[in-house]
Design a protein around this nucleic acid. Structure first.
Lengths: 206, 206
DNA sequence: GTCTATATTGTGATAGAC
DNA sequence: GTCTATCACAATATAGAC
């Protein structure tokens, strides 16, 4: 994105990216101004255009970054040689931990993919996501009789749903069920890791 | 919102609201301009301010409307005297049908509650949502031994997650699993009503 | 590379004629 | 009630000095 010599400009480009992540993910593309990002980065507005020609291009960089958070890296775990129950538990635990640490990313991504699906098209071209990666692993488990027959896509979405939704809808759930108590909800999500694992495991028993 | 005589102005206020729903739910508060809404309604920009003083107030009306779509009306079903399995199936089916017909509302709400939780606070004050309504019904079922012991809040969120998420994340899932085929995804959601019901039922067996 | 200054367009909102 | 005209300001983006 920047020319080759770069005295200490790598640092500046990085400051911009970090600031842009922070602000874009909180307020979305349309809810964010270049001035906000510049202020957050402690630099001038014009510099943003110097490094990333347009607001749209800067946003693309942030979106790409955030996107990889909601497409989980299940493959390593699934292709290991543990039992299916252990695999489920590891996936759910690691995924929910990651989401909890980036709690604004789910709603951010969900909003932007509905607002502009074309951006999704472009980004998925580049990142070589192969749905078979996920699906085949579950097909194997079914063929070996480890889990009962089920559309693997439905199962995958069940898992993702129960991990992602409570983070994306946090402000609502936290208020309805926990009187807006931040810590109570954090603990609820902590317990939920076990709940979701058992829930999934129970539901796929042959 | 409008004075009492109103020649045929009721119709105008309604045209505005319908247009505002359409545009706000698609593009969000910040992604929508008053001009867009006026054009959609086929009227002048100033009229919007005449009926709803500010953009914020017009948005509040739309948000309130949309909000009632994602807080489901479980109570009638839960307090009926059917078996728990029938109740689950009815809730899931009716809720997913409603969401499918309003497929942009879930992501819209999820975005706006994260962007401005205070709005949620105000609206929930007015709409008398009592979490106990939902929770108590499940507590009853547990006490009668119809379902195994579980935190009712976790169970409720499991149900909501699996119904709402596949609608909110539709553009992403549709592209990954269905080559962006709209009809294929519609059918997938149709089958999913049965899948989710069975999934829940299986997981709560005592 | 980084800044200031500026161009240009679009925004929410109001005033006032009819 | 509905319109036109207009205000005050904020937005993205560029030009040009250093």
């Amino acid at each position: 994105m920047v020319k080759t010599p770069e005295t200490h400009s790598q640092s500046t480009e990085n400051k911009i990216l970090e600031a842009a992540k922070k602000v874009f993910i909180l307020h979305g593309l349309e809810g964010t101004s270049m001035q906000q990002i510049a202020s957050e980065a402690g630099i001038n507005k014009s510099l943003l255009h110097y490094y990333f020609r347009t607001k749209e291009k800067l946003f693309d960089a942030v979106f790409t970054y955030a996107f990889h958070y909601i497409v989980p890296q299940m493959e390593g775990i699934l292709s290991s040689d543990s039992g299916i129950n252990d695999k489920i538990e590891r996936i759910v635990t690691e995924y929910m931990d990651m989401l909890s640490e980036n709690k604004f990313i789910p709603a951010f991504i969900l909003h932007e993919i509905n607002r502009n699906p074309d951006r999704l098209y472009n980004i998925m071209q580049k990142s070589g996501i192969k749905p078979e990666m996920f699906v085949n692993q579950f097909v194997n488990e079914i063929q070996q009789g480890n889990i009962r027959p089920i559309d693997p896509r439905q199962l995958i979405i069940n898992i993702l749903s129960m991990c992602i939704f409570p983070v994306a809808a946090r402000p609502l759930i936290q208020r309805i069920f926990f009187g807006n108590n931040e810590n109570a909800y954090r603990q609820f999500l902590e317990e939920r890791k076990k709940v979701v694992s058992e829930f999934i495991i129970q539901s796929i028993k042959p």
